[in-house]
């Protein structure tokens, strides 16, 4: 009984994270803020989902694979976000300094 409860809690947290991710993705104006929201959801939300599934199903070969997926996501997600942000910084001439109103749009 305790296992599904913990898993459900983790899933609910993950849903909250995904909800705030999508809210941030649509409501923020500037590209770096939006990217921050998206990357947060990608890493934390997926971590919570995978952790919940591991708790729900117990230790087995499948949950070992899930841990591998978790490690892969943790490595690749932030690196990809970092690269996209680098692209924005490289292509935007105002980046690093003050942003004009046009950039924020």
């Amino acid at each position: 009984m305790i296992r599904p409860a913990i898993a459900g809690l983790l899933y609910a947290l993950a849903l909250f994270v995904f909800f705030s991710e999508i809210l941030g993705l649509y409501r923020f104006k500037y590209v770096l803020n939006r990217m921050h929201a998206a990357a947060m959801g990608d890493t934390l939300g997926i971590m919570l989902i995978v952790a919940g599934t591991i708790v729900l199903r117990g230790w087995s070969m499948a949950s070992l694979k899930l841990v591998l997926i978790l490690a892969f996501m943790f490595l690749t997600g932030p690196a990809a976000t970092h690269l996209i942000a680098g692209g924005e910084v490289r292509s935007n001439e105002h980046a690093g300094g003050e942003y004009t109103q046009e950039d924020r749009r």
Partner: peptide
Amino acid sequence: QDVILSRVCRVLVPC
């Protein structure tokens, strides 16, 4: 040129 990417890829590419 990117330090983070090359560090991540040192782990990732063999896998």
